[in-house]
Design a binder for these strands. Sequence first.
DNA 1: CGCCCTTAGTGTCATTCTGACTTTTAGCCG
DNA 2: CGGCTAAAAGTCAGAATGACACTAAGGGCG
Lengths: 235, 235
Amino acid sequence: MSTPCASIAVSTVIFTVRPTGPGGRHELWLPLVRRIREPYHHMWALPGGPLDGDQTLEDAATAYLRLTAGLDASHLEQLATFGGLTRSQGADERVVTVVYWAALPAQDAAAGEEDLNVTWLRATDLPPLAFDHSLVVAHALERLRDRIADPTVARSFLPAAFTIAQLREVHEAILGRSVDAPNFRRHVLRSGRLQDTGERVPGTPHRPPALYRFTADGAPDFFRSGPNPLHQETP
Amino acid sequence: MSTPCASIAVSTVIFTVRPTGPGGRHELWLPLVRRIREPYHHMWALPGGPLDGDQTLEDAATAYLRLTAGLDASHLEQLATFGGLTRSQGADERVVTVVYWAALPAQDAAAGEEDLNVTWLRATDLPPLAFDHSLVVAHALERLRDRIADPTVARSFLPAAFTIAQLREVHEAILGRSVDAPNFRRHVLRSGRLQDTGERVPGTPHRPPALYRFTADGAPDFFRSGPNPLHQETP
DNA sequence: CGCCCTTAGTGTCATTCTGACTTTTAGCCG
DNA sequence: CGGCTAAAAGTCAGAATGACACTAAGGGCG
């Protein structure tokens, strides 16, 4: 039951949302670290490294995340495992990498320092990355788009109290397109996952928006709650 | 970049659909293999084993699948990777297991021999399994339910030509509930993924059903094709 | 032959959901 | 006070959904 020794690595795709687009549009950003040795020396790569013998996979992902962003994610989820034979060309042994993806609220991510070996870039406009990490990021983006229907994912990009506009901006950043504001409001309010705090954002040059927070429980999904797609009951 | 030597294993949850329920209802079945050594000696476990140094992960999954079912799956997809520290209690070293799930058409699965160390059981009514495999199967069932909206998944349980009733029975088995036949027909036909072969199943004691096959391409999903949930465009 | 049974396949209809809008409200700014 | 902006509420046509009723086409059987 023992295999030829293969090393196991853990990497994390860390997402955050920032209002950096034209007209304040929100965009997805992620941190990368510079390779300081061969292979792929000097190129950007996903934060990660070897799995210690006494760590769970999730522990390792959390540790590399903290090392890179300086803080913990509010959402961490396994993405997939990559184990192609040729993916780490130049390394002398086989590497299997378990990849996680994580969400960071914008205000926390701002605290993460940037240094010479860590950079934050737009997720949709990355240079070629080390190993197969460009492919990994593409997978992570696709997964994130699928998972955004889950309110717990959207909430992990936001502070505890937020406006519906902020929530919509998170969706827009992840889906890469704008979303009709009135319809979005109708939908998320009808989902029953939002609770009005009674407070409003003061000091705006226009009507002050209400602050909401997520309820502890409720429908599993913002979209497509209620009864399922087709597939209705027939006793 | 080297880690303490950990062994990597690959396991596969192999699903097939059989008309074994009351009144010919279709149910999900999967094969298990008997452990022939400690730990968990004599218990049932998912087919799998160590990853060879020169195999891709998918190669290994395919190999264990063939060893167990005697043939290749028509659909193979990665599920998740399990690496808890305590999951293989009694083993002397850390094991990280990459799990795949696969679909087998019923007529092919019938060909797979059953012997003393391989058994097929109902997926929804399993005895306690070795390691954390009960949990793994639960994850696989959940994933399968999510993925069945993809026509390529449904097709992998069926022969090339099939009736809409057979297609519906696959959905019913996976969703664990019955589905309204007229509405199901309307939906899958409207999806544009089905092509009438012009042939019919002869010899039925009732109106002969038409045989369909899947078109090469078309809408990505049976359900929820067309424009997306909410999230419509707003230029 | 002709009735009956069974499942295939079609049609209908009320309700809900979606997407694209318009209108009103509530604050600052000058 | 009028104008500006974004929040919030309202409107409406068309599509999708779910629950049915109904017709069609076979074989089985008397």
